[in-house]
Simulated assay, not measured.
Amino acid sequence: MTVRVNQFFDWKQQGRPVAVLTAWDFMSGRIADQAGADIVLVGDSLAMVALGYETTLPLTFEEMLHHAKAARRGVDQALFVVDLPFLSYQVDISGAMRSAGRMLKEAGAQAVKVEGGYLRMAQTIEALVESGIPVMGHVGLTPQSVNLIGGFRKQGKSPEAADRILQEAIAIEKAGAFSIVLEHIPAELAKTITETLTITTIGIGAGQHCDGQVLVTADVLGLSDWQPPFAKRYVDLQEAGVDAARQFCEDVRSQAFPL
């Protein structure tokens, strides 16, 4: 079954959990899609996973577009969502429209994801949705604001911060987003947001009460040198890959390969 944006409201009403995996190229897109992910997200985490940057901030729009095009060729069934990278949508609404439109037209995105929930961002989301572009929101730990929030720390721990995130989530829903990522916030706050909203909440480090969960596929496969405490490594492909490559090098030097 091919996943569409309008299915998520029904799935929330039915209590059907949503599984989301990230992708950064054709192979990772195909793996996530064939695994049965409901959403394949080309997250700006590819800045670190695929390009070796320390944060998501250096990632350019053209780099993101290039990787999204590649990942799209591996996805047949899942909803294909693409992050808009830093400064490709924050300057003004017209710039956000151009960036999102290019992702749909050139990369085949079916929706875009934007970070932040302040009034200005809600206005941007509303404009995108009114133009026919589905939007996924993102509150809590927003990696593109890493310098403002002082690192990759859990957000919403004080009552004031928790209420601000809740109000941001409400504003994003009112703006017309079809879903929202809740990243690295207390589980009780995520539960409150999930129960308050009618749109799908996707948790990452936000406990078990969200409507769905997302992980970076590189973390799932054990390809990351470092992963956050809330991630789960299901297999260690990095170690297995290094071992296989080392064996090849040894076979070449001992002339065991080729046979």
Rank of each mutant, 00 (worst) to 15 (best):
F9D: 14
F9E: 15
K12S: 07
R16K: 15
T22L: 06
D33E: 10
I39E: 00
E54A: 14
E54C: 05
L57W: 08
T60A: 08
E62G: 01
A70W: 09
F80Y: 13
V82Q: 04
F86R: 07
Y89I: 05
V91A: 14
S94H: 13
G95N: 09
G101R: 04
G101I: 04
L104P: 08
A107W: 04
V114H: 02
G117L: 11
A122S: 10
G140A: 02
G140E: 08
G140L: 05
V146W: 10
G150F: 06
F152D: 08
G156R: 05
K157W: 06
S158A: 06
L166P: 11
E168R: 02
A171M: 03
F178G: 06
F178D: 02
E183A: 08
I185W: 00
I185M: 08
L189I: 09
I193E: 01
T198Y: 06
Q208I: 13
H209A: 14
G212E: 08
G212C: 06
Q213E: 09
P229A: 13
F230S: 10
F230D: 06
F230A: 07
V235I: 13
L237K: 06
L237S: 09
G241S: 12
V242M: 14
D251A: 14
V252M: 13
P258N: 01
